[in-house]
Design a protein around this nucleic acid. Sequence first.
DNA 1: CTGTTAGCGCTTTCAC
DNA 2: GTGAAAGCGCTAACAG
Lengths: 349, 349
Amino acid sequence: MAGRSVAKAVTRADVARYAGVSSAVVSYVVNDGPKPVAASTAARVREAIDVLGYRPNINARALKLGTTGMLGLVVPDSSNPFFAEFALEIERVATERGLALLVASSNSDPELESRLIVDLAGRQVDGLIVSGTAGPPRPRAPGDRRLATPTVYIDSSLPVAGYHTIGSDSIGGAKLAVDHLVVDHGHASVALLIGSGARSSVDERESGWLEALRALDAQDGPVVRAPFTRAGGYRGGLRLLDLSPRPTAVFVSNDLQAIGLLRAAHEGGVRVPEDLAIVAYDGTQESEYCWPPLTSARQPVPTMAAAAVETVLDNPDAPSHQTFAIELVIRRSCGCGRPGRALGSEPSP
Amino acid sequence: MAGRSVAKAVTRADVARYAGVSSAVVSYVVNDGPKPVAASTAARVREAIDVLGYRPNINARALKLGTTGMLGLVVPDSSNPFFAEFALEIERVATERGLALLVASSNSDPELESRLIVDLAGRQVDGLIVSGTAGPPRPRAPGDRRLATPTVYIDSSLPVAGYHTIGSDSIGGAKLAVDHLVVDHGHASVALLIGSGARSSVDERESGWLEALRALDAQDGPVVRAPFTRAGGYRGGLRLLDLSPRPTAVFVSNDLQAIGLLRAAHEGGVRVPEDLAIVAYDGTQESEYCWPPLTSARQPVPTMAAAAVETVLDNPDAPSHQTFAIELVIRRSCGCGRPGRALGSEPSP
DNA sequence: CTGTTAGCGCTTTCAC
DNA sequence: GTGAAAGCGCTAACAG
């Protein structure tokens, strides 16, 4: 059905004919090598290219070279601002390196996810970056057939044998959040509003929250589980606010949920941070512009994205693991600053 | 540099050898045609495929067929939730049709944008969907060389000669917004906070705003221009709130700006909607979860995305234009509902 | 039902 | 400095 309509593309042979040279020469001038070409010939070729409107067929090139100049990215949900920002950063560094980005969303469905991975691998992408819904894959069995495509799992705070993995230091991040609430703001205990995913293992944000509380001899507050979405945060928030006694402080596992919680609080007349202090996780742009602005444990997205691309491209063998420190961005929802006045009141551009 | 590490992939020839058939037969079973294959042979081939872990090389296939099974999408800013949602929808329908999506962000830079378009076209995508930062291209000159790739411009409320265009009915949408503010809420005039882009022509949202005001014999309020971002809305909002007399109602050209404006209002102690009624444009998810929830003129993103893909794939010739009606989603920021209580208080999932 | 084979557009070695 | 030709992995005539 397609293919029919693609107006007969002009090919390297057309250019060669028009310029009165061989197709090899066209190749030399297009790629600026590997052989030198006389200046005058080159000029003629370039003119032919211009006149004819020639565009090299990148796929043919890929076939010959065994390289596609494409990266694949699969995320659970690209409308989650965190993944959107991640994707944008990856795209930025890919573009810088002359690569294009093939994206796919698994919609948090492990089955779809693996189909997408297989599909992208079949498209011969030069590297695959995946944020697994089902968490990182299980360690590779000894005789396992490798996926030929170099792959890195992001969003994995622990190493997985046989794979490249990258993640933020969620344990450390959770601790930062809890410490701030307990030490700096004097809360006796901190609740947890956390995502309920398909992930098999315990979320490290939960471990960090617990560890921090223990280390401070503070009490762990109630735990509420809800989907990693605004709506999930809203519903989870409703339950959280219904608890008695109502928690005075909560650590929320991502910005989206915190925003949902904020809505629940507004509707219930619960003042943030006066009645309920909130620290979130991710530090997306959206967290800066809700009301009150969210204090959030920010993942260094640009750095992580750059590392992902680099790892998969420059280091395809030798599985590695990298963890990135997170930074607590202080705004108003934790209780810092003055009411009605956002901290750092000139928002970033 | 790349290519080296790609573990020698298993090819159709390997499978053929292993199964003791010709490569054509392998092709027949993989594609389920065009020739029939004996059941027993097919089984042998399938087993070989399995054992060897064979994956067809999609690029080779593309080269042969003149079709890549890829769509290209270029947007100004994929971290804008509106475009993120759009991209997600396009991806969804593309996946349904077995196509992959190549995305690129122009970062609102017209120069980058055209480079990206050329690059994607060179990658032989089967169709190109672009949301132009420079607006749709100028009408095609008679002798103009066509871009061979079928292309549709989204976000273009007016037709452009020689191109496929798709857009929401921004004039109608703006009127809906203004009418609601003036007729239903009794505001004597409505201000405008609108994006300042690279677009050459006047934004139709501005025209709609003006027309609606005229039609109602109402007064046009002040116009403030600022970038299409949260920060832009914030800064524009600061200026707007500084005006005297301060407007009592404002139509904002996208959700992002409205969210920035909301922050400015919160900081300035201006109550929304009591002191300032707001109606935004786009109707992204984020508009549902800020506080107060935004009344917004919603673009039918899924419908538009489906139309874009269909147009570019099934209708590559015969330039067409499609406009989609927008729907005013009533929430709290316009003054509807009760204070502290969001309208439709059970948010969507 | 199965096999042979000619390319798709490109790069690159090897000759001139 | 330039050209001829092989071949990347795949499909689809065309023969058997």
